[in-house]
C-alpha cells in the first residue's frame, strides 16, 4: 500500500521543469522522483507495465545519487524509447562511504500517438538539487530537468 508520505510533484521553473519526490525513506522518495520525471512528459499512471530494466549507479552523496538516478532513467528512455510507470529502488552504503543504488524501472515502449509526450528531457541538473529529510521525517528529493 502506498504510504501517505509518498507522492510526487512538478515545480515551476523559468525555462524548464522541476521534479520532486516525497517518501518515508530516500528509496521511496527516489521512486516518486522517477514518477515526477515521467510527469514532465505525460501522466505516469497511463503507462502499461510491460517491460522491466535494471539500473545501477553510485555516488558520494545522496543528492548526487539522485542526479545520477534521474540521468540513468533519462538515458534509458532516450536509448530504448521507453516510458516508465513504476520503480523499485534499493540504496546501500558501501565501504568507503559511497552510496550504491540498485533499481528497477517498469514501463513500455513509447507509442507516439498514445502517449503524446510533451518534450524530450535532455538531462538532470544541479539546479535546486536536494536530497534531505524534513522535521517530520519525510525524505524529499528534487532537481530541475533540462528540457
Amino acid at each position: 500500500m502506498k504510504h501517505a508520505k509518498e507522492k510526487w510533484e512538478l515545480f515551476s521553473h523559468k525555462a524548464d521543469m522541476g521534479i520532486r519526490g516525497f517518501g518515508s525513506s530516500f528509496e521511496k522518495a527516489f521512486e516518486q522522483g522517477g514518477l515526477a520525471l515521467m510527469g514532465v512528459l505525460m501522466d505516469p499512471a497511463q503507462v502499461t507495465l510491460q517491460t522491466s530494466i535494471r539500473i545501477s549507479c553510485s555516488a558520494p552523496t545522496m543528492d548526487m545519487l539522485f542526479y545520477d538516478w534521474i540521468n540513468e532513467l533519462i538515458y534509458e528512455m532516450a536509448r530504448q524509447h521507453l516510458v516508465f510507470g513504476q520503480y523499485h529502488v534499493k540504496i546501500n552504503e558501501v565501504q568507503g562511504g559511497d552510496l550504491v543504488l540498485e533499481g528497477e524501472a517498469l514501463g513500455e515502449t513509447i507509442d507516439v500517438e498514445k502517449h503524446q509526450l510533451a518534450v524530450e528531457i535532455k538531462g538532470a541538473t544541479f539546479t535546486e538539487l536536494k536530497a534531505e529529510k524534513n522535521e517530520l521525517g519525510t525524505c524529499i528529493v528534487q532537481c530541475v530537468v533540462d528540457v
Binding site: 512528459l41 524509447h81 507516439v112 524530450e120 528531457i121
Partner: peptide
Amino acid sequence: RSIPAGMGRG
C-alpha cells in the same frame, strides 16, 4: 513524415 521530431522518434 520525412524529418523525425519529438520525443520517442528515432
